[in-house]
Amino acid sequence: MSGANDMSIAGLILEASIPVQLIMLLLLIISVMSWALIFQRSGVLNTASRKSKQFEDKFWSGIDLSKLSTELSQSDQKKQGLESLFLAGYKEFMRLRQQSGVSPEAVMDGTHRAMRVAHSREVEKLEQNLSFLATVGSVTPYIGLFGTVWGIMTSFIALGSVKQATLAMVAPGIAEALIATAMGLFAAIPAVIAYNRFTNRLQRIEIRYENFLEEFSGILHRKAHS
């Protein structure tokens, strides 16, 4: 326990015991990583939503499917989202349709499987590292609480060797220990909010992918039987 009178947050952190300081440092690192992931995932989901809308607008504009496939294949931009689903389905559809002896049902089965695989890959990309935010939200409060318990325990152990204990003697130790809990909550709350928000947005994007997959399958089904 520190006997200093510096009750500022910075002073309490600098004068905290080594274990409590290490816990605070760990929470700070986790918080920085969490915020970096929040900004990164937010950008990824924003891009996915924007590109999905752009592709749907182009797809439903009446453009020829073979022309759209050629444009996407020749484009240097990275394919993602609905573009990947479309290319996977259309290329497999054309490949199977050009083979002799393949029934329309077999063509559609293969096409649907190809789009399902592409769908799973795209959703997996969007879900990447979201579990880290869930872990931060559930674990960091307990890490902060451990630092608080350790700091308070150290303060009271130190008081055991003092004949006359006063509030002024124990207050700095308890205050510095409580900072660990505050840091744990500071790391956990944004992570929980971001995780819930991203999960909701991801579900909407996934529904959009599912709807396109079914609508595109219907178009190809009619084409296969024409």
Rank of each mutant, 00 (worst) to 15 (best):
A16C: 14
R41D: 06
R41S: 06
A187C: 14
E214A: 08
P104G: 14
Y90N: 09
M169R: 14
R208I: 01
E127I: 12
N129L: 09
S161I: 03
S75E: 09
F86K: 04
S155Y: 05
E15Y: 07
L130W: 08
G144K: 09
I205Q: 10
F132L: 13
Q54K: 14
A106F: 06
P104L: 08
L96M: 08
G101L: 15
S155R: 04
V149L: 10
L27C: 12
E214N: 08
E92P: 01
I157W: 12
S138E: 13
V192R: 05
V149S: 01
G101P: 10
D109Q: 12
K78E: 06
G11C: 15
A10P: 12
S49F: 10
I174F: 11
G101A: 11
N196P: 08
E105W: 11
D64V: 11
Q164P: 02
M115K: 00
G110N: 10
S217L: 09
E92G: 01
R204A: 15
L12H: 10
E176A: 14
R113M: 15
I193C: 07
G101Q: 14
V149R: 01
Q74D: 14
K125A: 05
G137W: 03
P141G: 09
E215S: 15
E210C: 01
A224K: 03
N200K: 10
E206W: 00
R204H: 15
L130S: 09
S84N: 08
I193F: 08
L85G: 01
G11S: 15
T47G: 13
I207P: 02
I30S: 03
L68M: 14
E122W: 00
P141L: 07
S31H: 08
L85P: 01
K78N: 05
L65E: 09
F216Y: 07
I23E: 00
S103I: 06
A88V: 00
D76F: 12
K163T: 13
Q74T: 11
S161Q: 13
Q164M: 12
L72Q: 15
G184D: 04
